[in-house]
Design a protein around this nucleic acid. Structure first.
Lengths: 220, 220
DNA sequence: GGATGTGAAGTGATTCACAGCC
DNA sequence: GGCTGTGAATCACTTCACATCC
């Protein structure tokens, strides 16, 4: 008997649900109580039909002829994404990027909570960022096992990222978000996502130059 | 007569080409002169067949039975992505994230060059970051028109991002990369790409929790 | 009337499998 | 023998169109 993969939500949809959550927060702050798929879609920069299909994955939540209740929809999405429970994360590498991540308010409101910040540079250790104190690398394993960390974020230079990845997985972390420009290898069962800040820029530039020469030649 | 969209490369492929470029640089530094699709694919974290299909979009460049010439492939990809010409960019917003972007060495090696850094805070103006001096916002338009900027990068707080977007487009910028957590609206003909750092984290967390409860119930 | 929810069609991307070439 | 290049098949996602319900 094959389990027909019920209760699965496409990854592309999950990514957009996170965006809807942010947009809904804005509508709620603005005092709106209901919103239509058209309004929500335009504020999120997506197609209305696609938005409705996305929402259909979490079970019908709107009222035909009216729209969606802002508060109810927000809670529904937050529950599905797990944003109502607080998940512990550690962040390794507090250069400018790491510091930006540690400071970013968006994580807290989405159910993420840093329980440890780590850096190898002695002069960074002890610094306070976003309400936490930067710890030396030697404390990494103790914090991971001690605070039930489920996610590790790597924002170190490329050279040490693989080694950090290994320490995190050895300590029990099963999900890793990597901002260092190297492809990490991790044991099966560990989920690694790679974010390369320059890739988006490269795609943007390519689309721009392609638009400039719509069906043109390649320069010889 | 319908133009059959020749000379078009899928967006997903473009994003991966940027990754291959980085990986090839590593192989070249390591003294490798040829590389197979299998090696390259595993170093880039993709499927070998997919890599070959990606490369096929730029015309055959490998040797059957042997592999790819590292240097030739690198040049080929760089040319297609436009990375051999230097493209001027401006960066607005020099908080931690903006500073990280300004400092990031990966941009220069990929054909991007910042010609202006701008911040609204008077105490940041004058600071030197990555070889440039931070300028006041009043100078934005002059730099954009004066240095032929093709790409604008926004790393400001969410509240002012839309306004910056308008100033950039009014000054003639046609491609914008936005790191602020708001959906920007721009006139037709302007390409805006949105990067939300917390979305990746949210997707990662979702996949992790989904794996923990493979075909399970929703908590009541 | 108006907006949701969803099967069906369409599009795009990934993977497979193998022919072609060194 | 080994590895590339690519049609064919599969899979995933998007868009459309409309039945459904308030």
């Amino acid at each position: 008997m094959i389990q027909p993969r019920l209760r699965t939500i496409p990854e592309a949809t999950v990514a957009r649900l996170a965006v809807y959550l942010r947009v809904l927060a804005g509508f709620a702050d603005g005092g709106r109580t209901t919103v239509s798929s058209g309004e929500l879609a335009s504020a999120a920069g997506v197609n209305p039909a696609g938005l409705r299909k996305d929402l259909s994955h979490l079970g019908s939540c709107g009222v035909r002829g009216v729209g969606y209740d802002v508060r109810a929809l927000r809670e529904r999405i937050a529950r599905v994404l797990g944003a109502e429970q607080s998940r512990a994360c550690v962040l390794v590498g507090l250069g400018n990027l790491g510091t930006a991540l540690a400071d970013y308010a968006g994580f807290g409101s989405r159910g993420f909570r840093f329980t440890g910040l780590f850096d190898a540079a002695p002069d960074r250790v002890g610094e306070r960022i976003g309400g936490l104190t930067v710890q030396p690398m030697t404390e990494l394993e103790a914090t991971v096992t001690g605070t039930g960390v489920s996610i590790g974020v790597i924002a170190t230079p490329a050279e040490v990222a693989q080694q950090i990845c290994e320490r995190l997985t050895a300590a029990g972390v099963r999900s890793i978000l990597n901002f260092a420009p190297v492809t990490l290898t991790a044991p099966a069962g560990v989920d690694v996502r790679q974010v390369d800040l320059s890739v988006e820029l490269q795609v943007l530039a390519f689309l721009g130059q392609q638009r400039a020469v719509p069906a043109g030649e390649v320069s010889a």
